[in-house]
Write a protein that binds this DNA or RNA. Structure first.
Length: 234
DNA sequence: GCGACAG
DNA sequence: ATCTTGTCGC
């Protein structure tokens, strides 16, 4: 079954999905829809996965926080079966719909969405964060722990950032602390690389990853355990 | 052709 | 992402 899905993807359908990504990328706006001062909230989104009877499920959690105070306002959750495998550069087809639904439940005016995945720092300029930002027509930023695409130099000092380039500036490699490896930040939609960096840095504080992402990660795992324990007892 | 490759 | 214990270091 799994092999069937993978082979059908290999034989050309991935090309069509890649074309879809290129079309979505054409809708991206890299100017700030919100100035830094206008940002009132941020939403962090992340997901957890698990298998139940040979089927795979995803739990997405979206945590709305005040900005720049970072007080939790609301949490949105989406739970569903997943049928698309993880394929590098096609992550949006596996996690995108679920992430969008979770964010929809908590989204307000003047909010920047922070996603655990690339934005335009992607071979076709269409990472998970771009998908979410275009689908919701809302400012979004992508943050990853590993680089996916683009040329950059290693930031060496704590707090230092280096541009990620693909002809032009498409994001930043940022070193959160002396012993931390860099994180990679790129605009998803409706935000500039500079503002994307500034917002993310403002949410990191003493950690490596943005606090909204950390909170979303915790919530997704919390929900995952809930579903599993409910299943067991029923 | 070979290797790289978010979560 | 997920499977998993302890452990080294700031």
């Amino acid at each position: 079954m799994l092999e069937d899905r993978l082979s059908s993807l290999r034989d050309g359908s991935l090309d069509k999905l890649a074309e879809l990504q290129k079309r979505i990328a054409e809708e991206v706006v890299l100017e700030d829809a919100l100035s830094y001062e206008e940002i009132k909230y941020v939403v962090g989104v992340d997901q957890a996965f698990f298998k139940k009877n040979d089927e795979e499920f995803v739990v997405s959690a979206a945590v709305l926080m005040s900005f720049p105070e970072l007080r939790i306002q609301e949490v949105g959750v989406d739970f569903r079966k997943v049928d698309f495998p993880y394929i590098p550069t096609f992550l949006m087809f596996r996690e995108g719909d679920s992430a969008v639904e979770a964010v929809k439940k908590v989204l307000r005016e003047r909010t920047v969405v922070i996603v655990d995945g690339s934005g335009i720092a992607h071979p076709r300029k269409c990472g998970l964060a771009t998908f979410v930002g275009v689908a919701l027509k809302n400012p979004s930023v992508g943050v990853t722990k590993k680089p996916l695409y683009g040329k950059f130099e290693e930031p060496k000092r704590s707090g230092e950032s280096k541009g990620i380039f693909d002809g032009k500036l498409i994001g930043y490699a940022y070193k959160p602390c002396a012993r931390c490896k860099p994180i990679y930040i790129s605009p998803g939609n409706m935000i500039s690389p500079e503002t994307a960096l500034k917002v993310v840095v403002a949410t990191i504080r003493n950690y490596k990853l943005p606090i909204p992402i950390r909170e979303a990660h915790r919530m997704a795992n919390r929900e995952k355990l809930n579903y599993l324990s409910d299943f067991d007892s029923s």
